[in-house]
Amino acid sequence: MAAIALTALILDALIGWPAAWFRRVGHPVTWAGRLIAALDRGLNRGAARRAKGAMTVVLVLAAAVVPAALLQAWLGPWVAAVLAWPLVAARSLDQHLRAVLVPLRAGDIAGARAATAMIVGRDLRRADAAALSRASLESLAENASDGIIAPLFWAAVGGLPGIAAYKAINTMDSMIGHRTPRHADFGMVAARLDDAANLIPARLTAGLIALASGRRAAWTVAWRDAGAHRSPNAGWPEGAMAGALGIRLSGPRVYGDRVAEEPWLNAGAPDPGPADLARGIALIRRAVALAGLGLLALALI
């Protein structure tokens, strides 16, 4: 199974998911998104919304896992590795963050705001270079876990069905796992399942960041501050990133007309800047390379 994960990572690093392919056929995550959206429209109404949400989770997981298991059984592990490739997002994450870094380094705040808005949901209309760097680094750290390490972990555990299940769970959480009047009950099972699926990968990502940085502060900050984060998992990679770079992350942020008073990770450290964003991108590349080496060792064993 580790060979499936490693092959998927290598293919993603070399090719990614070309934009022309996305325009022509979409992407497995967008296919799952259409199913989730249809079930949300059809089931998220009336009474028993929590039960209907649980039914949605079962249906989406079945739609992802059953074909994946059959394809792996029929076609073998190497074809399974190729099919797992689109479900790893290392190249895409790197491209999105470099799209923020280039205008930020050039002093183009408007361009940096537009690029950052592609990866975070907060209000950036008044964000300066420090706020944009902070938001981008948080997204980089969290998505290194959700988009790279967690899919690789579940591919190594369960092959193509494992990574397909994880991406289905993660997509459901991003679409219906919100604490809003519409989704608080309907998306509760999806949100809790996503928390469970990311429990090990988030801490593994923090460890890889700490190891890649060579700084004890990375793990120290993650261990000390992760519990204060609003997410049970995101605080681990974000805390490790803050400690590794010697900057502070999280803290207050604006969503529409509401200010969310989030606690700081690595409070007392300075705000990040464009140079720190560049260091963070390089750090995640090293952490992913270490993950690849770990998968290689497991595959050889």
Rank of each mutant, 00 (worst) to 15 (best):
L104F: 07
L104E: 11
R105H: 13
R105K: 15
A106I: 03
G107F: 09
G107A: 06
D108S: 05
D108F: 06
I109M: 12
I109C: 03
I109V: 15
A110F: 06
A110L: 14
A110Y: 01
A110C: 04
G111S: 12
A112M: 13
A112E: 12
R113Q: 14
A114I: 00
A114Q: 14
A115Q: 14
A115L: 05
T116G: 07
T116I: 07
A117R: 11
A117D: 03
M118W: 01
M118F: 02
I119T: 08
I119G: 01
I119Q: 06
V120N: 01
V120R: 03
R122A: 10
R122P: 12
R122T: 07
D123T: 15
D123S: 15
L124M: 09
R125C: 02
R125K: 14
R125W: 08
R125Q: 12
R126G: 01
R126E: 15
R126I: 01
R126D: 15
R126C: 00
A127E: 05
A127N: 04
D128V: 09
A129W: 00
A129V: 02
A129L: 00
A131H: 07
A131L: 14
A131P: 04
L132E: 03
L132P: 05
L132Y: 02
S133G: 13
S133W: 08
S133L: 08
S133Y: 05
R134L: 13
R134I: 03
R134H: 07
R134Y: 05
A135W: 06
A135T: 08
S136F: 06
S136L: 10
L137N: 04
L137M: 11
L137Y: 03
L137I: 15
L137T: 07
E138G: 12
E138W: 12
E138P: 13
E138K: 13
E138N: 11
S139F: 03
S139L: 06
L140G: 13
L140K: 03
A141D: 09
A141G: 11
E142G: 09
E142D: 05
E142K: 10
E142C: 14
E142F: 10
N143V: 04
N143K: 12
N143A: 10
N143F: 03
A144P: 00
A144V: 00
A144Q: 03
A144E: 01
S145G: 00
S145T: 06
S145R: 02
S145E: 01
D146E: 14
D146P: 02
D146G: 07
G147V: 14
G147N: 06
G147P: 00
I148A: 03
I148N: 04
I148C: 07
I148D: 05
I149F: 14
I149S: 06
A150C: 07
A150G: 10
A150K: 01
P151E: 14
P151H: 10
P151S: 14
L152E: 04
L152C: 15
L152M: 11
L152S: 10
L152W: 08
F153Q: 01
F153P: 01
F153T: 15
W154I: 11
W154H: 15
A155V: 11
A155F: 09
A156W: 14
A156R: 07
A156I: 10
A156C: 11
A156L: 14
